[in-house]
Write a protein that binds this DNA or RNA. Structure first.
Lengths: 300, 300
DNA sequence: CTGTTAGCGCTTTCAA
DNA sequence: TTGAAAGCGCTAACAG
């Protein structure tokens, strides 16, 4: 009967099984910007590793706008393209999250949900603690004037890491001034001015905590142009431990947030959820650790 | 009838329509390595832009091994998960290409197919010409001793770019020596030795053509560690014009191969092929141009 | 234990 | 123009 060359038709099977063994992965809009950050390829790797192991497939959604994403998610969910979705972002007042939650459709967030924190399975780092740890690593080297440069501040990562930075400062009885905090998309020209202003201050910082390796790379380049030497004149630390941070000159001290693991665990949790209807919501925290490299010097 | 809240079921529709309006995108194995290179996120962007416009979806295949990829492609094709596939690589003696071609399944290659070049639709740059052009840009600055550092040399990109480099040298009556050519995966420690050896030569190069921005970044970092100044001591050019090349210190002169366009055109061609059974095979060449930045100096 | 049948949700065809 | 019916390829339920 099934001699050479028979292959089941997925659509027919899915139709009756009411399951597609596919999951949707949603990249934040605008996808073109997001994909610039090595964070995403790396989560994707993590996700796809377990996806494959479980014989699932992966639909990638990369809308250009929030609206486009929302529509695609709607289509995917209602059309039963997919069994579940992984959200690679968490934003304040996000329609997609709202929708998925209302529909009671299986989904997990990589990051921290804005609302319904206890009802939505999410996998995240302890970004507050990570912010504290990395800031302390600067304090331990004698730095007392430490600035913070972060990306979009409607993102929880930024908020949490910044809060950790502030807490570390406070714990060490160090000045915690607004002048020392910058929020910028580093690729924009605006970022440059902000960094320059930092050094025009009466008492410029000797250390900088940057919320992301990619921004860190931009800052590094800026600093070099402005003729500051890292780590001699100024120390720099960041987050993510993306492969870039190893290659830069000097290499970056950064907190390794285990991006791959973030992806793998989220996929695992999602599949469990799709398989078992009433798998409870949970929060999965991936431990971080600091990777010490060459961008930090002792305060002299 | 169709008041609020009706959504067609894709599987039912696909079953009868014999079309899924989905395409598979195959990332070369091992996907984890490949995804490190910003090239892929960027093609993905290009692909997804037209995919969305046409209301198609995108299946991402990211196997860890050649075998895994092959199996997934088989599953996707036979199970009619997808209407067509985009191959993001072209390798010598590739099973996947062989399979797709034998099956007469719609697919396009980003790059140059090894066999059946005239029967397989592919979108590519003129990498030979690009290699020539970028090498000439070095020659025009007075450089006569120019080295070439390339990645895996079973990839057509590398081969073509290297051939262009050699042609430019020959055309200018310059020395074309084997000692000047290195093939390496820059992330491996081996690469370092190879670069060091270059400068131990009796007559070390004053310019380097690197086959890829990512490798370029690695070389840049190495050079800095070895205390060579770019562009003062040595000039560096590369390929791809990935966002990184703008951010490095110094920024990289590189050939812009329009990665986004590569992706967009391949998706467009594929969809045409899936829609129209006997759309003829074609070769689509995306024009390149050189982006001049700060990594090149005049030979002094 | 093997074989037959109903039905998944849609589109397309054909009849009214 | 509108409505009923057949069938896409499979799985699950049921009968033999």
């Amino acid at each position: 009967m099934k001699e050479m060359g028979y292959h089941p038709n997925v659509n027919a099977r899915n139709l009756v099984a009411k399951s597609t063994k596919s999951i949707g992965v949603i990249i934040p809009s605008p996808a073109d910007k997001a994909l610039q950050n090595p964070f995403f390829p790396e989560v994707l790797r993590g996700i796809s590793s377990v996806i494959h192991k479980m014989h699932y497939s992966m639909f990638l959604s990369t809308g250009e706008s929030e609206k486009e994403i929302f529509e695609e998610v709607q289509r995917m969910v209602h059309g039963s393209y997919i069994d579940g979705v992984i959200l690679l972002y968490s934003r304040v007042d996000d329609r997609v999250t709202e929708f998925l939650h209302k529909q009671n459709f299986p989904f997990v967030i990589v990051g921290k949900p804005y609302e319904y924190t206890n009802e939505i399975t999410h996998v995240d780092n302890d970004n507050y603690q990570a912010g504290k740890d990395i800031t302390n690593s600067l304090i331990e080297q004698g730095h007392e004037k430490i600035a913070f440069i972060g990306g979009a501040n409607d993102l929880f990562v930024t908020i949490d890491r910044e809060a950790g930075y502030e807490a570390a400062l406070t714990d060490a009885n160090l000045k915690n001034s607004e002048e020392y905090k910058i929020h910028t998309e580093f690729l924009e020209s605006g970022g440059r001015g902000a960094v320059e202003r930092l050094f025009l201050l009466e008492s410029p910082p000797t250390g900088i905590v940057v919320s992301d390796d990619l921004i860190g790379l931009g800052v590094l380049s800026m600093l070099e142009e402005l003729a500051y030497n890292v780590p001699r004149d100024i120390s720099l630390v960041s987050f993510n431990n993306v492969y870039l941070s190893e290659i830069t000159q000097p290499s970056l001290t950064t907190v390794d947030i285990k991006i791959y693991e973030l992806g793998a665990q989220s996929a695992k949790a999602l599949i469990e959820k799709t398989v078992n209807e009433d798998e409870p919501a949970k929060r999965i925290i991936i431990p971080h650790n600091i990777v010490y490299r060459d961008s930090v010097g002792k305060k002299n």
